[in-house]
Design a protein around this nucleic acid. Structure first.
Length: 277
DNA sequence: CGCCAGGTAGGTA
DNA sequence: TACCTACATGGC
């Protein structure tokens, strides 16, 4: 177990792990008063919780530095990011103040792509359920603590499935989208790692050749899975938010577009009346 | 029950 | 280009 205090002092586990950017973290009760979050990424399970100002990661030091440090984006200074966004507009300042502990997770490209394919025209509780069933059905089991967790299934594993095979997911019309994505990625036709460095518009266009991937899903995959924070936030909440932010140009977000998106999305969920079209 | 969900595909004018 | 609607399922 390793203890860690983010250099920028910025981390709220609930805000970061349950703000609609990742769907596979779940709260667990370690003891009477100790609440933690448990999840799987890159084939590794983790339980993480907070004690005073310190965060406790239930993993080896090597695993923390080779995996979780990057996953939680500890190399980025979110205090500076939050200040820059707050200066743009009072509403953005309020949104940032509302969820100051959000960090943008550096998720697996393939998992993020699938997660946001599943997210389309869907609600967060059901998105979580579908992804959980997908992992239980096709992922590899990880015996961990007192439970069994599952890794996210590879594209190679998913590509051999039929829509009927995926019926237990109850993913509806999205099942065929997942299979198409799996075929395109596993065949090498779409090289996700190459899209990390390709020109952003080229990367987005490439992703949008996948059935069921439009501009929104593509941008979410770019942001959360490929860490392309320079992409324009197309999120529906952001579109509505821009009408509330006179004088703010989306370009003003710069590399902080992803953080702004999460601030506003989180804020909007709590204040929906402000964001009605 | 009805409305809606972090949209997109496929069709039409 | 700009709309329109079906889509599967279930949370609320």
């Amino acid at each position: 177990m390793i203890r860690w205090i983010p250099a920028d002092g910025c981390l709220d586990l609930a805000q970061t792990l349950d703000c609609g950017q990742a769907f596979r973290w779940q709260p667990v009760l370690l003891s009477e008063k100790r609440e933690a979050w448990r999840g799987v990424a890159f084939g590794h399970a983790l339980t993480v919780w907070q004690e005073e100002e310190t965060f406790c990661f239930d993993c080896t030091e090597e695993e923390f530095h080779s995996l979780w440090y990057s996953y939680f984006d500890f190399g980025t200074d979110y205090a500076t990011t939050r200040a820059a966004l707050s200066a743009l507009h009072p509403i953005l300042r309020d949104a940032a103040a509302y969820a100051p502990g959000i960090r943008i997770l550096r998720q697996e490209p393939w998992e993020a792509l699938c997660a946001f394919i599943v997210s389309q025209n869907n609600n967060i509780p059901r998105i979580k359920g579908i992804l959980e069933r997908l992992c239980a059905l096709l992922g590899d089991p990880l015996i961990y603590a007192d439970t069994t967790l599952y890794t996210f299934p590879s594209a190679e594993r998913l590509r051999v499935c039929t829509v009927e095979d995926l019926a237990p997911l109850r993913a509806g019309f999205r099942a065929k989208y997942l299979i198409d994505a799996a075929k395109r990625v596993s065949s090498g036709e779409i090289d996700l790692s190459a899209l990390c460095t390709a020109p952003i518009d080229e990367a987005r266009d490439k992703l949008m050749t996948i059935l069921g991937v439009g501009p929104k899903v593509a941008d979410c995959a770019l942001l959360y899975g490929l860490h392309r924070t320079c992409c324009f936030p197309l999120d529906v909440w952001m579109k509505r938010a821009m009408t509330l932010l006179p004088g703010v140009n989306p370009a003003d977000f710069g590399d902080n577009a992803g953080v702004a998106q999460q601030y506003i999305f989180h804020y909007a969920r709590m204040h929906p009346e402000l964001f009605r079209a």
